[in-house]
Amino acid sequence: MTSYEQWISFYTIVRKDVVRMLRIWPQTFLPAIVTSALYFLVFGAFMGSRIGTIEGVPYIMFIVPGLVMMQAVMNSYTNVAFVMFQSKFFNRNIDEILVSPTPPWVLIAGFVAGGVLRGVVTALLVLLVALVFTPLAIFNGFIIALFLILASVIFALGGLTNGVFAKSMDAINIVPTFVLQPLVYLGGVFYSAKTLPGIWGEVTMIDPIFYLVNGFRYGFIGKSDVSVWLAIGVLCALAALLFAVVLYLLRTGLGLRQ
């Protein structure tokens, strides 16, 4: 395929996903808005007033980046995992792409771009909801955008791996509930790692979401538990590793071709 044809194929995959997302917006965008509003209300407005400040900023302002990141991560992951699983398991229309000359990396890019769009749009919507509860400072807009996109890319790639491998709907649902949510809650969304006792501070360091949340939070309040450059390095390495895994799966057909 020429570069132009690859672009057409990429655009087609993304367009199809966007049409799907918009068709079922009460399932794709609304839940994140409602859930986040509840978090801001309970943890921010009600409990936050008793907690006071963390790292010198009001508690609600401290948790906003983490909650936005949580929705970006969850949405980019589930979007790609579900679309891939549905198209390979229920109606098998993934074959439409597999029979075509579309190279595996274009397929990955298309699916991941769909996940990134869902993650980023959801994050922006949640940020708008946050503005109802608290004013937001922006310390570095570039860092905010970089971490938001990095998070969406990483978890879209993770979702694609899960979607390709999964043999049942349970395998799709288990990961967000039993893997992602613990990682999110233990990744410093609601607290600073500096406040953790003993070994827990070091355990947090192996949670990739810790780097995402901290880097993203740095973009807002200018403070982070870890070096932003270290966070960028860890996350880029993780993205590269996941891309290599998915590319291997698609090239060999593992999980997709018999």
Partner: peptide
């Protein structure tokens, strides 16, 4: 294929046009 494998929620015209897209 032997089994129906279209996107059941997709519009007829989109299904055909999208297939063209995958061929560039």
């Amino acid at each position: 294929p032997q089994n129906l494998n279209v996107d059941f929620f997709g519009k007829v015209i989109d299904i055909v046009v999208n297939q063209g897209g995958y061929y560039g």
